[in-house]
Simulated scan of single mutants.
Amino acid sequence: MVLEIRRAGRSDRDAVARLLDEAFREDPVSSWVFPDPEHRAAVHGAFLGVFVDVALEEGRIDYAADGSAAALWLRVPAGEPQDGAAEDDVPARMRAAADPDNERCELVGRLTGAVHPTAEGHEYLLMIAVAPGWQGRGLGTELMRPVLDRCDREGVPAYLEASSERSMRLYERLGWEFTGEAVQLPDGPLMWPMWRKPQPTTAA
């Protein structure tokens, strides 16, 4: 299918946050952060809304024109993040925005941040969401394709953390490879960091 994609702006902030909430509310990681379903329903949108804010501030959001899907990207330079950089305080911002007494809100970001590659600059797929009624139709692949094609042309790698084995298999089809160092959430699920080397391009 052909997906019409535009770049999201500040006016799309709440709609994108709602989409993330709907797409990830039953995700293993979200269920671990907020074990009680009623509490999760109340705070999950605020939790993931911080990701939307960061992408609008520091990166880009590719958004399906019909609101069915969104991909949040950050361009991460090589080297350790500088003290005070926006990426550094994201875990604390997520906890403060959603559930200040819940340390799991912050722990997810601390644990994934500890294994985030720093040797090479890369495109970081912070999150990708497809509305529940549209999942399984290839929208996520279509949404990622323009950025991945650009990465291949420019020789830029890409990175993400898969939150389920199912999503990891989908990413593998697009060239991502598991780094070999899973993130184990305490008494919770695994997350799979994945790295994508630029793929050879075929000359027209």
Rank of each mutant, 00 (worst) to 15 (best):
V2G: 08
A8F: 09
R10A: 15
S11V: 11
R13Y: 02
V16G: 01
L20M: 15
D21L: 09
D21W: 11
A23S: 15
D27V: 03
P28T: 10
P35V: 02
P37K: 11
P37C: 09
R40W: 05
A41Q: 11
H44W: 13
F47V: 04
V52M: 00
D53W: 01
D53C: 03
A55P: 04
E58R: 14
A69F: 14
W73Q: 08
A78P: 00
E80T: 14
E80K: 13
P91D: 08
P91V: 10
A92N: 05
A92I: 06
D101L: 06
N102A: 02
E103M: 06
E106M: 03
A114S: 15
V115M: 05
V115Y: 06
E120P: 01
E120Y: 10
Y124R: 01
G133R: 13
W134L: 05
W134F: 12
L139E: 03
L139P: 05
L139H: 15
R145I: 08
P146S: 12
V147S: 11
R150M: 11
R153P: 02
E154S: 03
P157E: 02
A158Q: 05
L160M: 12
S163W: 07
S164I: 11
R169Q: 14
Y171M: 06
W176A: 07
W176V: 08
W176Q: 02
W176Y: 15
F178K: 01
T179E: 09
A182R: 12
W192H: 02
K197T: 12
T201A: 13
T202K: 07
T202G: 07
A204L: 12
